[in-house]
Design a protein around this nucleic acid. Sequence first.
DNA 1: AAACCATTGCGTCTTTGTGACACAATGATA
DNA 2: TATCATTGTGTCACAAAGACGCAATGGTTT
Lengths: 247, 247
Amino acid sequence: MTDITNQDIIPNISVDCVIFGFHENELKVFLLNYTGTNLWALPGGFIEKNKTIEEAGADILKERIGLENIFLKQFDVFSNPERSKHAPEILELIKKIGRYDVSVFQSRFISIGLYALLDHTKVTTTLDRYSDKSKWVAIDKVKNTILDHKEIINTALKTLRLQISYTPIGYNLLPQKFTMPEMQSLYETILGKKLDRRNFQRKMNAYNILNKLDEKREGVAHKAPFLYEFNQENYKEALKNGFNNSW
Amino acid sequence: MTDITNQDIIPNISVDCVIFGFHENELKVFLLNYTGTNLWALPGGFIEKNKTIEEAGADILKERIGLENIFLKQFDVFSNPERSKHAPEILELIKKIGRYDVSVFQSRFISIGLYALLDHTKVTTTLDRYSDKSKWVAIDKVKNTILDHKEIINTALKTLRLQISYTPIGYNLLPQKFTMPEMQSLYETILGKKLDRRNFQRKMNAYNILNKLDEKREGVAHKAPFLYEFNQENYKEALKNGFNNSW
DNA sequence: AAACCATTGCGTCTTTGTGACACAATGATA
DNA sequence: TATCATTGTGTCACAAAGACGCAATGGTTT
């Protein structure tokens, strides 16, 4: 990762990425630990002068998670002038680290929230010299976050739950081949409630975004479930137009 | 309106308000004409240091439209580095006007898009010394806009059309008492298509956000339609939770 | 090897929502 | 007084969604 000097960034605008992962029936979020503290933060950064928000987000994902071409969705802007009032906690650290000029953190900045959904197992964490630890934290166990990052995570989850009702979900979250119960488990995890197995299958099939394969998952206890894959074309189409047009 | 000096604003972040009005079965957007040009712009401005995005938007609505407590919805962020490349057209003007330091416009800035829906007739336009004209322009007749304001308007409309399927609409757009055909006309205008009168009525009533009054609209040709008003409590509830929960 | 049993796949029944349309009531207008 | 565009209500057919029955599957247990 190349360093970013203050000349190259817009000092008042940052992006923060809420990266959701799905593992062992839990929805998790990816957090970084800044060296020498017990504080955790969303991967993020200031925006370089010649980049869009989306490009800035994609750069962060590539640097920190090692993945490209991930669907990133802007969901809100966090602009409370008080949001950086806890900054003193990390100002000392910033000074040590020398990545950005401390003055950047002392003045107010807004943050644009992006979220991504991805397959937890594909991630190869790339730590840099500003953080020596990272972890996936269950969505309801997030704590010790800097600034308003907890609020950002909560808002991302709320947006995700709203969007799941009119947008297809799962493309980057599930492995290439997956079973219907796995898909259901993903939905249940995001929504935080149980769904009827049989009705779920019927409705999901009606969306027409999956290809049923002629294979079954092997080596599992009990009846082996069929494997599915995403129908790329229809999935993209559904992303554009949504499911429930209602009027 | 008090002047804003460069010391009080964040130079890289502006808000632009897409103010939709509904009149004569047309969806219109409110635009300002900068003095001495044929260029039109969305009401907007830079953000003061101690304000949130929402507060900045509310200030603009109050100053330019004379209305308070209007529902403003953040819908996107416009961050293309090229977005201000047409700025030279207005740089001369900015210089004359002296509202902001020209350097602010010469450097890149992002803009956060907000939209509002309101009753066209309640508006008392307040012109300032930067603009001597304002007008309501039919949504499909917008032209000669500065920067990427046309794109901002298009995106706002797209968002509005998407949101109308899971969010109640109309509170600030219709008069306090209104008829079902008026409500339908609003929906048809936003969606850009005709709806069945009878099915619309049934569905709208099922949403449970309206109170049917014991009065009819008087002095109209043909059969007089009943008047309705919004059920404040249920409307707010619906705004929070949405209509189509789907899962 | 046979019985077991948790899980899957498919189907049924009922209720609710939606699109299309019929018909009577209304009330200003001719 | 007759006309007629418009409104309010209802019907019918069909699709979507929730609840649940039941047989098939295939590893596990005895």
